[in-house]
């Protein structure tokens, strides 16, 4: 029995010594918190510990996976038949759409070759499953994927779903990784408004259905319905991925700038399968000089000669160099 040990304990605690211990522990805790907010070495410590903690995550995720499997296993025949009919109809629809997309892609390829503006964006992607999601009131907006450093995942790779940009990888463990969503308060994406080309920055605000666009000049041309795509600046995300759609435009609290709210394109709260981009964006800085620019010689021959296209940049650059001796 445990009673004898209790009898020796005084009725009103142990007094000063336990209070002192509490104070010591609280001081340590506060020091840790400050170090964690400021520092980076604790991040590394946490990444190392992540390897040991991973099995607990797997264990915690097991019941919900079991429930999902059970729902499939126990579904009755009628439901399955209905589902089958529904799915085959959807497949037909999807195939038709796919054909059209193929045709468009072929046409696109021809046009791009014709213009030789850019190499086609050959994307190499990796399919990943979402294994854990947790959005607490103060937690970072993150999801966990079942790919890790064993699959060649590296920190900083962009993650997309079928509709748009989802986030980027911030932590990598051997068999899993953590993705910081674009809706997180600490996340910002350089974007371009597709209609006007205006460059700005989209910040997350912690909620899954809203992105903030702070500090837009009041005179800027932006209105609800404008599409936002990544601008490719900053060297983290490749250009021209859809990010969101502007929902409302208003003034910010100071009245000096406009501030807009946008709805993210990616289904931040629903994606079960996502794509990890393997091709990282161009590094910061000007790209290498293009060799050929303009239509192929065979097409350009009959019209005006091409040279004017290469000459204009030179006079523009020279004054700028002279201006800052």
């Amino acid at each position: 029995m445990a009673i004898p040990a209790n009898n020796t304990a005084p009725l009103f605690g142990e007094g000063a010594s336990s209070t002192l211990r509490l104070v010591v522990y609280l001081v340590i805790a506060v020091a840790l918190m400050i170090a964690d907010r400021r520092g980076d070495w604790l991040e590394r410590f946490r990444a190392a510990a992540g390897t040991f903690i991973e099995p607990i995550y797997r264990l915690a995720a097991a019941p919900s996976e079991l429930a999902r499997d059970a729902r499939v296993a126990l579904a009755d025949r009628r439901v399955l038949t209905e589902q089958n009919a529904e799915l085959s109809r959807q497949l037909l629809l999807a195939q038709t759409r796919l054909r059209r997309v193929e045709a468009v892609q072929e046409q696109n390829q021809r046009l791009q070759e014709l213009l030789s503006v850019q190499k086609t964006l050959g994307l190499s992607v990796q399919l990943a499953k979402v294994i854990d999601v947790d959005f607490g009131p103060y937690r970072r907006n993150t999801i966990m994927l079942d790919l890790g450093s064993d699959n060649g995942i590296k920190i900083g790779q962009p993650v997309i779903d079928a509709r748009g940009l989802l986030g980027q990888i911030v932590e990598v463990r051997p068999r899993s990784c953590t993705v910081l969503l674009i809706s997180d308060k600490s996340h910002a994406v350089p974007v371009r408004i597709e209609r006007t080309g205006l460059r700005t920055i989209v910040r997350g605000n912690g909620t899954l259905d809203t992105l903030d666009l702070p500090n837009i000049p009041i005179s800027a041309d932006i209105k609800p319905g404008d599409k936002l795509v990544t601008s490719g600046l900053g060297g983290r995300f490749p250009a021209d991925f859809p990010v969101g759609v502007v929902r409302s435009v208003g003034n910010d609290s100071t009245g000096m700038f406009a501030a807009a709210k946008a709805t993210p394109d990616a289904t931040l709260d629903r994606s079960a399968e996502v794509l990890v981009l393997h091709e990282l964006a161009n590094p910061v800085g000007p790209p290498a000089q293009a060799e050929e620019f303009g239509p192929p010689a065979a097409l350009a021959g009959s019209d005006e000669p091409a040279p004017p296209a290469t000459t204009p940049p030179a006079p523009v650059e020279d004054p700028a160099k002279q201006g800052e001796p």
């Binding site: 609280l26 506060v30 020091a31 918190m33 964690d36 907010r37 946490r46 937690r139």
Partner: peptide
């Protein structure tokens, strides 16, 4: 804190305070 991934030391502090109060008024 390590498992949950919030600020390190935060739950340690909360649990310490909780533990202290409970031990005080345990009887």
């Amino acid at each position: 804190d390590l498992v949950g991934g919030e600020v390190l030391g935060e739950q340690a502090m909360r649990l310490c305070i909780l533990c202290f109060i409970v031990l005080r008024f345990r009887s």
